[in-house]
Write a protein that binds this DNA or RNA. Structure first.
Lengths: 237, 237
DNA sequence: GCTTTTCATTATGAATGCAAAATGCATTAC
DNA sequence: GTAATGCATTTTGCATTCATAATGAAAAGC
């Protein structure tokens, strides 16, 4: 330490902040996943390694590792000696995913009612209020994000990290359905009212009711999503 | 051998059998997963790439790709710049996994009751009979395999491939608990009786009862596994 | 004697190189 | 004119190589 050279900002004031140096691999996984989820890479399209290498400015090694991981997640499919292609989210698969999410959320809701603390109820209530506000403002993306946040938070509060992990994995994959865009005003209104009921059950710590409400809520969501997928089942580009 | 060289066995008798040439990558993933699941690589041990390369006789490239995939599955953990280590299955995590499997199996059971065909009932019945036979023979591994097969088959019959995929993933990971070995005679007996009831509900196509039975069955299983993990929580080597 | 520092060794992250497979196109046979 | 064949190019699978971070041991300082 010749001189005060490598004096980090406020040395000693904060506990060792591990310097974030993400590996190229993780970065590529995250970015490639975004590309797929945002639909920038349309389902069914072949994904040549070279193109992605240039796009990300990395060599083929970390890119290929990322492809294997995404393939394991089910977002892409590896064709032997013929590269990768973006998997298509079929209506059937989306329906199945919603069914699984429904049972997971129902179970999470019940557990959450047993464990939730007052401060967490307030937290959910705040998220809910902001979500309703977005609804009245007609802000679909904003509404959608807060909606997701509420569901995810309830799952977190349930305190089962395995369940939370699986749930989040499904939530990520289902994003490709992009059913939010096609939310009809009637369904949107209904969804908000369902959320009111969910919040009420949570406040009352009524696990049985909450489980039922979430199952129904998810079934309706699945129905809306199925309609959206039917209307626009394939590549949009 | 420039004669009738590429005459495959029985040309024309079978429809185009795509020549099986598994990629090194897939092979390594499968074999490495086995090593972890069979406990050959004890939990918590560091896994140097070099050692595995020699073991499998491959270069680091396919091996590293496999490590990323296994890490995504949660069987190993990648420490930045410090290689990989086999993750330890904690009692808490096992408990959480059983809880998730319980809700998945309950849901699958209900769906299976709606969809199951007579032939499939016979299939389950046959598996069950063989399992009971293994029980009377005192053959734990045999019993365990058939037990797993029954559960998996019920999940399959439910007809939700997303659910089945998640279930199988959990079933693989839970194998590391190896709770079968510590099955007490009392619990073993109880488990068989529970399976009798499950079979009966399936035959009667009583989804509600089946869901309840499977939830209870899994809870008991989780209890037994938790005891086993408590007794022998770490590396055995 | 104990801690700290320096340096050699090793292991990991990433890039490049090479062989085999696949793809596209031109040519040829019918 | 159409379909099949051969060849050049591109792409993929894997091995090797290079650079950097981590590990361990010896030496220096207190």
């Amino acid at each position: 330490m010749s001189g005060s050279v490598h004096s980090g900002p406020e040395v000693g004031t904060r506990a060792t902040v591990p310097i974030r140096r993400v590996s190229l691999h993780d970065e590529v996984v995250a970015r490639l996943r975004e590309l797929v989820l945002e639909g920038e890479l349309a389902p069914g399209t072949r994904v040549p390694e070279k193109m992605l290498c240039e796009r990300f400015g990395v060599s083929r090694t970390p890119l290929r590792e990322a492809l294997k991981v995404l393939a394991a997640e089910g977002l892409i499919r590896l064709l032997p000696n013929r590269g990768a292609e973006v998997t298509r989210l079929t209506p059937k698969e989306a329906e199945e995913m919603f069914a699984v999410m429904a049972v997971l959320e129902a179970a999470a809701g019940e557990a959450a009612c047993r464990r939730i603390r007052d401060s967490e109820i307030e937290e959910i209530r705040a998220l809910h209020a902001r979500m309703v506000e977005r609804y009245h403002a007609g802000d679909r993306p904003g509404y959608f994000d807060l909606n997701q946040a509420i569901h995810r938070r309830i799952v977190e509060i349930a305190g089962n990290s395995v369940l939370a992990g699986i749930y989040n994995g499904l939530a990520i994959r289902i994003r490709r359905a992009r059913y939010a865009a096609n939310l009809s005003p009637a369904r949107w209104d209904e969804a908000v009212r369902e959320h009111e009921a969910i919040l009420a059950a949570l406040v009352a710590r009524d696990g049985t009711t909450l489980a039922r409400l979430m199952t129904e809520h998810l079934r309706h969501k699945a129905y809306a999503a199925a309609a959206a997928l039917r209307d626009e089942p394939g590549d949009v580009s």
